[in-house]
């Protein structure tokens, strides 16, 4: 004779195990968000410190700046984490959106600081502003992201700033307006030149960036990876 109590008990225990699994996964995801927030705060402090240093020095001592390079590695590492969190939690999750906005602001600040330093110190960094969309209207964005990731791994000094075109952030929208970026995406601004649209293969990209020749190549894997490109 079957025992309905046992059937019910087994159901409740199984459900409890599933709820526990869900709870543990959610707790770990919260820790991830906290980890990203912590990293962003650290980067924000570092950026602010660089800006203050920049202001203080006035007649800039470029050797000091060279000793304290801007935060490409940290930003790339953060991007990697954010991209992972976005994939895990979904790009619409409120916390992910906030983190992404903060990350975007840090990118813009880093970009501006880099430009100021390059003007004053007469350095020639190679930078790419990459505008993508992950709302399904940019089928080529994923491939463009792959090419940029490869380039950044090959040339650690290449500075790739990727921006979610649809992110509701006034600073980003100002940048988009100033740079006259339009859809369809992907759009690339290489070293402040006019925007380039559409997917470019690795070969095309290397032709578009002859400056890459001036950068040292990496023989080991860079710690960086793709920023969120979907």
């Amino acid at each position: 004779m079957q025992d309905w109590r046992k059937y019910t008990l087994a159901f409740f225990i199984t459900t409890a195990i599933f709820i526990t699994a869900f709870y543990i996964a959610a707790r770990i995801d919260s820790s991830r968000i906290a980890d990203i927030r912590g990293a962003q705060e650290a980067i924000a402090i570092d950026l602010l410190s660089s800006e203050v240093q920049f202001e203080l020095l006035g007649n800039l001592d470029c050797s000091i700046i060279a000793e304290h390079p801007v935060l490409t590695d940290e930003l790339n590492s953060l991007a990697e984490r954010l991209s992972f969190a976005e994939e895990r939690l979904g790009s619409d999750t409120a916390e992910v959106v906030i983190l992404k906005k903060q990350y975007t602001l840090l990118e813009i600040k880093d970009y501006l600081l880099m430009r100021q330093i390059s003007q004053k110190c007469n350095t020639k960094p190679v930078s790419v502003l990459y505008f993508y969309s992950n709302t399904g209207d940019c089928p080529e964005c994923s491939k463009t992201g792959d090419v940029l990731t490869y380039l950044r791994e090959t040339y650690p000094d290449l500075r790739v700033y990727s921006f979610d075109y649809n992110l509701d952030l006034s600073a980003l929208q100002t940048l988009i307006t100033l740079r006259k970026i339009k859809t369809p995406l992907p759009a690339l601004i290489i070293n402040s030149r006019a925007p380039v649209y559409g997917f470019k293969t690795l070969e095309d990209m290397e032709k578009l960036m002859p400056e890459l020749q001036t950068l040292a190549t990496s023989t080991k894997e860079s710690t960086s990876s793709a920023t969120s490109t979907r």
Binding site: S142, K143, D146, V147, Y150, E153, F199, T201, L202, E203
Partner: peptide, 11 residues
């Protein structure tokens, strides 16, 4: 397919 389309070599 992505590798073929992008020209990014396998590393």
């Amino acid at each position: 397919l992505n590798m073929w389309a992008t020209g990014v070599p396998v590393t």
